[in-house]
Amino acid sequence: MYLNSIFHNPERLERLINIASSSFVPLLEGAITYTLPLTVITFTIGLVIAFFTALARIFGNRFLRGIAQGYVSIIRGTPLLVQLFIIFYGLPTVGLTISPFPSAIIGFSLNVGAYASEIIRAAILSIPKVQWEAAYSIGMTRSQAIRRIILPQATRVAIPPLSNSFIGLIKDTSLASLILVTEMFRRAQEIAATNYEFLFVYSIAAFIYWVICFIFSIIQGKIEGRLDRFVKTVGGVR
């Protein structure tokens, strides 16, 4: 019906083509200048946090374990949007004002850190105990065993779920629109607010998200294929 009304109304069709061509560029620009950088930066910082959190949870003393566990529990137990609001709208009331983009970086990094730490932790724990023992039996220290035997194998296990998190993060960055980051979705909201073509404009935004995710899932497939070339039996018996 929507399409019908468009195609039987040349004026409306022309208007939509105009809107499409004038909004596509700002949307793409939003994706390239904010959505993608936000994703890549927060994922990188998040991975670093996740790595140390996972190590703290597995190998840390009681104190470190407690901190790491508390952090993961708080982040996983509260909505991401609420976390972003606390950072951007909440902290200024105690005199700590952070502008939109850095707020988003902080919020998303903490979020990724908590979730990815669980993935990394599970990957490390999935490496059979006998791999540790084999490492010790040829004279490795604990830290050598972790660095050279356990982590390389855990990386292979963790990459597929981490790629999933990455793709999830691309889409989650649209929440940053609510703390005034002018990423792609915020721009879509602004454009739609002027021309009232909500369905049309948001669909264009959705399409761009989909294309980006599609490209990354192809890259993910390539990376996994490469890893499989080396080790066909990850997760297998031996």
Binding site: Q131, E133, A134, A135, S137, M140, P152, R156, V234, R238
Partner: peptide, 20 residues
């Protein structure tokens, strides 16, 4: 004494090779 310092070679029941 820790396993590392015992200078013992161990061949495991299921090989336990470093698969990477």
């Amino acid at each position: 004494v820790s396993p590392k310092e015992r200078k013992v070679g161990f061949v495991f029941q299921h090989y336990a090779l470093f698969r990477h």
